[in-house]
Computed example of a mutant assay.
Amino acid sequence: MAEEVKLYGIVTSPFVTRVRIALNLKGIKYEFIEEDLKNKSPDLLKYNPVNKKVPVLVHNGNPISESLVIIEYIDDAWKGLPIMPRDAYEKAQARFWATFIADKCRPALLKAIGSHGEEQAVAEAHEQLQFLENELNVKGNKFFGGDNINLVDICASHIAYWVLTAEEAFGIELVTKDKFPKLTEWRGHFLNCQAVKDGLPPRERLIAYYKQRFGKA
């Protein structure tokens, strides 16, 4: 019996993209169903009645919501390239950095983007990014996950692609090679991965989203 895998989401969401990358890394075929968050579908409301948000993964009729929960589910449900470390301590560290990116980095970066590069907002974003730069320096690896992409890399896709696109949209600089050489190098490796490329939204659509949300430069 063929497996049925559906993903409910919106193209421009970094949280939805996390799940798409995880599915791609595992080589899982799935149907992507784009939602209109101003007019949510009955399926979305049925599958995620608590939060009524995307992403929602539906595997053989069983819904899973929240991107980090979905990624761990994907890693457990399908064989192939592991996304979560198998060592208990390394797994805890991966969860820590994934949470750090969501709770500290993303809000600071959004503030910097929304301000169109205001000096203080950029400085606050740089303070958070420096922790990730230091982590890459300590590990000395290609990715946060070592030689292969793991949970932390997937969660940092917002830094790799969304920030890069915002820089283009507003003519600002947030992640520069002179200030963050390891993050810049990591970003290049990450964005060159085919599983990542296939999960990212079109650049033009993301630029249009930024200009609508934060106004034109």
Results as ranks from 00 to 15, higher is better:
44 L>P: 00
44 L>E: 02
44 L>Q: 02
44 L>N: 01
44 L>Y: 02
44 L>H: 00
45 L>K: 11
45 L>M: 13
45 L>H: 09
45 L>N: 12
46 K>H: 01
46 K>D: 00
46 K>Y: 02
46 K>M: 00
46 K>S: 01
46 K>L: 01
47 Y>D: 05
47 Y>F: 15
47 Y>P: 02
47 Y>L: 12
47 Y>K: 06
47 Y>M: 12
48 N>Y: 03
48 N>H: 03
48 N>D: 03
49 P>W: 11
49 P>T: 13
49 P>K: 10
50 V>C: 05
50 V>G: 04
50 V>Y: 03
50 V>W: 05
51 N>M: 02
51 N>R: 06
51 N>E: 01
51 N>Q: 11
52 K>A: 10
52 K>Q: 15
52 K>G: 03
52 K>N: 08
53 K>M: 06
53 K>A: 06
53 K>S: 05
54 V>C: 09
54 V>T: 08
54 V>H: 04
55 P>Q: 10
55 P>A: 12
55 P>N: 12
55 P>Y: 10
55 P>R: 11
56 V>N: 07
56 V>C: 08
56 V>W: 06
56 V>T: 13
56 V>L: 08
56 V>G: 08
56 V>K: 06
57 L>H: 05
57 L>E: 07
57 L>A: 08
57 L>P: 07
58 V>E: 01
58 V>N: 02
58 V>W: 01
58 V>H: 01
58 V>Q: 01
59 H>E: 04
59 H>L: 06
59 H>I: 05
60 N>L: 10
60 N>T: 08
61 G>S: 14
61 G>N: 13
61 G>Y: 05
61 G>I: 08
61 G>A: 13
61 G>L: 07
61 G>P: 09
62 N>F: 15
62 N>P: 00
62 N>G: 00
62 N>V: 13
63 P>L: 14
63 P>K: 13
63 P>H: 13
63 P>M: 14
63 P>W: 13
63 P>D: 12
63 P>G: 07
63 P>Q: 11
65 S>M: 15
65 S>L: 10
65 S>K: 03
65 S>H: 14
66 E>S: 10
66 E>W: 11
66 E>A: 14
67 S>P: 06
67 S>T: 09
67 S>I: 09
67 S>D: 10
68 L>P: 02
68 L>E: 09
68 L>A: 15
69 V>Q: 09
69 V>A: 15
69 V>W: 08
70 I>S: 08
70 I>P: 04
70 I>T: 10
70 I>D: 05
70 I>H: 05
70 I>Y: 07
71 I>A: 00
71 I>H: 00
71 I>C: 02
72 E>S: 15
72 E>A: 14
73 Y>F: 15
74 I>R: 07
74 I>F: 07
74 I>Y: 09
74 I>H: 08
75 D>C: 14
75 D>Y: 13
75 D>P: 11
76 D>I: 05
76 D>E: 15
76 D>L: 14
77 A>K: 15
77 A>G: 10
77 A>P: 09
77 A>I: 05
77 A>C: 11
